[in-house]
Design a protein around this nucleic acid. Sequence first.
DNA 1: AACAATAATGAAATGTTTTTCATTTTTACA
DNA 2: TGTAAAAATGAAAAACATTTCATTATTGTT
Lengths: 222, 222
Amino acid sequence: MEVLIAEDEQSIANTLLKSFAATGNHAVIVGNGEEVLDAVKKIKFDVILLDWRMPKMTGLQVCRQLRELQDQTPIILLTALTEIANKVEALNAGADDYITKPFSFEEVLARINAVLRRFQSNTNSLPFGNFILNLITHAVEMELETVKLSEKEFELLKFFLLNKGTIISKEVLCEKIWDIHYPTTTNFVEVTVKNLRKKLEDFTSQKFIRTVYGEGYIFFAD
Amino acid sequence: MEVLIAEDEQSIANTLLKSFAATGNHAVIVGNGEEVLDAVKKIKFDVILLDWRMPKMTGLQVCRQLRELQDQTPIILLTALTEIANKVEALNAGADDYITKPFSFEEVLARINAVLRRFQSNTNSLPFGNFILNLITHAVEMELETVKLSEKEFELLKFFLLNKGTIISKEVLCEKIWDIHYPTTTNFVEVTVKNLRKKLEDFTSQKFIRTVYGEGYIFFAD
DNA sequence: AACAATAATGAAATGTTTTTCATTTTTACA
DNA sequence: TGTAAAAATGAAAAACATTTCATTATTGTT
């Protein structure tokens, strides 16, 4: 696991760093808010531990700014006892949880796991444009309207949504959706793409799946 | 929303009670651990606010006991600052969150909503016995083994799992799964039950669906 | 034990989805 | 613009799922 520690008190930061290393994880330390924004541009962290009181920007400001930049990385705020009154503010700023100092490393790990679990299990629908794919019913929904997808259509759309904006080759689709690991003899991938396209366009009046000649498909939304 | 407040300090309990009433919710106050166990037997609460330090049983003991009795009601522990060290213990005892005193009512509401959200979105699988129904893939799973259910079989099993231990009539199944609101002319419900039974028994070597002559079916697990 | 009501079953009929195939359309590039 | 490769399409064939139906088995009651 890749953790970003944003904390200006050296002793706390170093203790955390060592503890993460000892549990087989990897952490990066930064000392102020600006450095947080720089760091997340370079590395994709699993979680950010953010000190409430830091030079230049408060944890809260960093938090808001990250969310404005559409960064969804889970954030846990580290707050001192005197700041307890502002917990609600913290949650509203887009933090996912907070820990009050002093804390044990055991508690930090427990909190991180709780937050990650919440994140992972929070995915029973995938949004795109003004629509969502309901992962339970396998239908595309918009307010009260829905279209049911067949199984293959569902799996295809789900895969596209999990890989928005990147080129996906037919070979990859074949592997991931049909579990076929050798060159295909027929064009069932194209046929399924066609059917999904038709259903989506009839329902949404938009084109989401673009063909990249010789390479594969890209799904575009927003 | 129906809230159970387990708190022996009258002033705190009453303030909460009034605040819940003011926000259109309803709360019940009990003063010790035993009364909590009695109360949950009578009423189905949406959330339980549990004081850590109470006469007769600590909040932690109550928590453990509720979970042992298979009660899954969300629990938020109310702890004093001096008890901060034991947060991990609290989470491990089956509590879903905790709030340190003193707290604002605004914060209580925020926490409750966070916990409820987590609860509701946490359901992309339904466990029964040693197995789980995966709500995304529509398959029954046990470790690495899986069986895929057809759509009707999936909906039927899902409905059974959400209504474990209660008699479900064919009329209700017809309404809820087939969306048919008038007497049926054929026996497709029985046929679907038969097919689901076969798939489940082939896979699990157990019988989960019992017939109640003249009334309907019951799903049993554990 | 005998009966009528209810439930379970196997198999055919119908409806859907998935895959295949022959043909047409689009694309990149000379 | 002409060509070959790649992609899209309509429709048939094959595989699956759902519903119907006739028959057999089970249940509660007398």
